[in-house]
Design a binder for these strands. Structure first.
Lengths: 338, 338
DNA sequence: CTCACGTTTTGAAACGTTTCACCAACGACG
DNA sequence: CGTCGTTGGTGAAACGTTTCAAAACGTGAG
């Protein structure tokens, strides 16, 4: 900047004014300074600027798995809100790695970002509370958070309930839940929601097929197990804890010559793009991913703007069931006695 | 830091030493200082550190579409290399938006990141060259770049050639290429590669079904068009410019009661996770995404380490064909006269 | 001609680190 | 008992901005 000042024959202060409050500078000198900037290829040093007092104009979203479309969709919502507020968004991928997440949090705090959105590896990580306590606004996304910060989640109980209610309404009575491990809170909640639906209906039976992970391969394995059962005991419908499982399950059914939905109806969860693209489009529980991200970012911005009088909020969104061919289109068969 | 120094009754310099060269400080004082740091919740100000001379220890990957699994896989490779080098990686999503990309590039340059990886909205964007010219190492990912910087790409001609050669080898003679628009360089290359394969074989015929985009819906539409042709003129195989098209095409075939691969063999491109998860697992041209990212990051790091004696390299990877059920498993029928 | 006033421009302080030359203390050594 | 080397610690300069009080400059009124 010194060079620019010298080149344009003005003082440092004037260059700064051209950059930050151009209305204070006369047309003539402003042009001259801008020309010098262009000629010298000057690029403002953000560190110095920030050191002197400017904020960082930057948000970060520490995402659990950048490979998972769920999070990238959430990120789109975040991006939108950040754009609207004139802030840049950095995506940080923890990749489910506690250590990397910690490294990112440290770095972001040191960089004094305006705020951090995070889907934490471990919802109870004390670092997150500590970060918030030291003054960086934090919003937890898609995980329940203590009262120490804002959070934005989707109601998994309701999701499980919706899915199974739909299956019960379609006449199914032997229903399998496919998903796991139960150590994942969301899996637990979806099971609980499913059980709630069965209990409320007063009919039907839910069997849990626990899987080791939530991926396509595990869905295929579950498919083998289901197909291996004698028809009389075999469930007529499966509710999968996510769409990857559901796709794997669907694939295995096709491979084994069973028909979907006639032999097995399938409900997935997340409504990823490929749920609709499947050979038999998947019924799935859709989460308002975009709104989730947007709302999370808005909460964050609100907190960043008024750090004091800020009430932490726990926003819970309701999921929606998207019915497609994998559960048939009307009742599958007239319901047996209720 | 001043507060920490006062609290621990040492000088500023000592606190800095504890942080940066702990071996210079006696055990006793080091402990005392660390205790003060913990007690006061001190967090180093990265801006000041960087201003004084430390590098930013940060890379950024400006990605074209964070929603696209291709890029997130590339990002994983980048992440790996960055981790190995002890650098943090920020993901920036331009979302195909020229303006946002420009904003990110400005910001990153102002933040003096160690280097920028980018899959640009427009391969010929002069800003990228300008950035490199001003001294920020830049590597272009998945797009050809001029001699001004390094780039890492995959050979799309070869990819198209592989796909169509495979179909020809399987006995197909009427082959459709599904994809578009042709304004996309990669689409053009894949077509050219496909044509090359046909020309080399000296038999077979390639029809281009141009699509408006590379998504599932367009794949479905292409499916309708193909299914609508009289069987005698209908292609027996389709090579899709990406897996989304292929999935849409597959779905439409299933919906219309045509069988894959018996009535139509399908080859996709990209080998996304869901290619294998499809009801009929998709044959697809796999790009070494992970290695792409890793290599790109390594080139970047090499350039960052020795800005002077750096030869810009254009690395081209070869794609590989992954054969699955969507093209059958052996020759479909004995080949007619060559 | 002087003054007051509004507009531009200037100069220096401040931001929070790192670094480096230098100082103090201390034991060892001749 | 002076000298030297070592070890641990200090203080100030420097990094590149922004900001703000004050200086400089016109300009029109009195």
């Amino acid at each position: 900047m010194k060079d620019v000042a010298a080149h344009a024959r003005v003082s440092l202060g004037t260059v700064s004014n051209v950059l930050n409050r151009p209305e204070l500078v006369s047309e003539r000198t402003r042009k001259r300074v801008l020309a010098s900037i262009a000629e010298l290829g000057f690029v403002r040093n953000e560190s110095a600027r920030q050191l002197r007092g400017g904020g960082s104009r930057t948000l970060a979203y520490v995402v659990l798995d950048a490979t998972n479309p769920f999070f990238t969709d959430v990120a789109r919502g975040v991006q939108e809100a950040a754009d609207a507020a004139g802030l840049a968004l950095f995506l940080c991928n923890s990749g489910e790695d506690r250590e990397r997440q910690a490294a990112y949090l440290d770095l972001l705090e040191q960089q004094r970002v305006e705020g951090v959105l995070i889907t934490p590896v471990d919802a109870a990580d004390p670092r997150i509370g500590a970060l918030a306590a030291r003054g960086t606004p934090v919003v937890v996304v898609d995980r329940a958070a203590g009262p120490g910060h804002c959070s934005v989640t989707v109601d998994d109980l309701l999701g499980g309930d919706l899915a199974v209610t739909h299956l019960l309404d379609s006449g199914h009575r032997r229903i399998a839940f496919v998903g796991g491990p139960r150590t994942i809170g969301q899996v637990r909640d979806r099971i609980t929601g499913a059980e709630r639906a069965v209990a409320r209906a007063g009919t039907g039976e839910l069997t849990v097929l626990e899987t080791a992970r939530l991926d396509v391969a595990q869905g295929r394995r579950a498919g083998e197990r289901i197909a291996g059962l004698p028809a009389a005991r075999r469930p007529t419908a499966a509710f999968c804890a996510n769409d990857l499982l559901a796709l794997g399950l669907l694939q295995q059914m096709v491979r084994l010559g069973l028909r979907v939905p006639e032999d097995l109806a399938i409900v997935g969860y997340d409504d990823i793009e490929f749920a609709e693209a499947a050979a038999v489009p998947l019924t799935s529980v859709a989460q308002p991913r975009h709104r989730l991200g947007r709302t999370a970012a808005e909460l964050l911005l609100a907190e960043a703007r008024s750090p004091d009088g800020h009430e932490h909020q726990q926003v819970v969104f309701a999921p929606e069931l998207v019915v497609r061919a994998s559960t048939g289109l009307g009742p599958l068969r007239s319901s047996t006695v209720a």
